[in-house]
């Protein structure tokens, strides 16, 4: 792999005495689906916020899409998409209005908005619902829509923060089809999750414990390394070593 989407070196974030993220280093290749795992309070969200340009690291280095997280936050923001664990569309706007709004915020032209909007609606099979308020859609559809909207501006990297929380297994599978699609189109996917079956779908995963990255490899290699039958066992083996209690 020649091009790296994300490069992290000794990235650290302190809040007073508390070291939320402790010298983490990793690379993510372009077009890769990178799983970012860890128990609650392990520092996942803090690390992700730094990479998205939402907060400054205390020390260390990192580039996202080739831009420096200290100096080029604006450029980073233009080149990434983001979807959080909380549902992130406007409920009192229709499907199409949401697409127009988020597309518009990223500076898409009217023509692009129209094309992309049509394409997206057809792909998700939402033709009949295009004029419906998003609030009246089932959760699974909302999540799929939110993901599609998050990549409407063709970002180089998309950050997904527990995107499938509370969604049924069938819809989760469909959601992952969308993720594979995006990765096939050259979008790097950086995803956090609690579901270990989802971890298996990733190209590589890292597992955070107490602010450090304790394991980083492909799911197959990790299972071999920890002599485990499933990712679940790998995760428990590592999580047990945690000293920090989840809040």
């Amino acid at each position: 792999m020649s091009e790296k989407a994300i490069v992290c070196k000794d990235l650290t974030k302190r809040f007073g005495d508390f070291v939320a993220v402790n010298h983490i280093s990793f690379d993510v290749d372009k077009g890769e689906i990178f799983g970012f795992l860890g128990a609650n309070g392990a520092g996942k969200t803090t690390a992700m916020r730094m990479l998205c340009g939402l907060s400054y690291p205390t020390s260390g280095e990192a580039t996202v899409a080739g831009y420096n997280v200290f100096k080029q936050q604006e450029a980073i923001k233009r080149n990434i998409g983001y979807m959080s664990q909380k549902f992130s569309l406007y409920e009192s706007l229709t499907v199409r209005e949401n697409i127009r709004f988020y597309g518009g915020v990223y500076g898409l032209s009217d023509k692009q908005l129209k094309e992309k909007g049509d394409e997206l609606i057809t792909k998700l099979g939402l033709e009949k619902e295009a004029k419906m308020m998003v609030g009246s859609l089932p959760l699974g559809w909302k999540q799929k829509l939110a993901f599609s909207v998050a990549i409407i501006h063709q970002p180089r990297i998309v950050f997904l923060d527990e995107p499938t929380g509370g969604v049924d297994p069938v819809t989760r599978r469909q959601f992952w089809d969308l993720i594979y699609d995006a990765a096939a189109n050259g979008i790097t996917v950086f995803v956090t999750t609690h579901y270990m079956d989802e971890a298996e779908y990733c190209n590589r995963i890292s597992i955070m414990v107490d602010g450090r990255i304790d394991a980083l490899d492909s799911p197959a290699n990790l299972k071999k390394q920890y002599d485990a039958a499933s990712m679940n066992e790998v995760f428990y083996a590592l999580a047990r070593t945690a000293k920090r209690s989840a809040d």
């Binding site: 998205c52 340009g53 939402l54 604006e74 923001k77 233009r78 990434i80 983001y82 979807m83 959080s84 664990q85 909380k86 549902f87 992130s88 569309l89 406007y90 409920e91 988020y102 915020v105 990223y106 500076g107 998050a150 950050f159």
Partner: peptide
């Protein structure tokens, strides 16, 4: 509350 603020802050806006 809705979580949309985070999305706005991650955007170039």
């Amino acid at each position: 509350e809705m979580g949309t603020m985070e999305i706005l802050l991650v955007s170039p806006f």
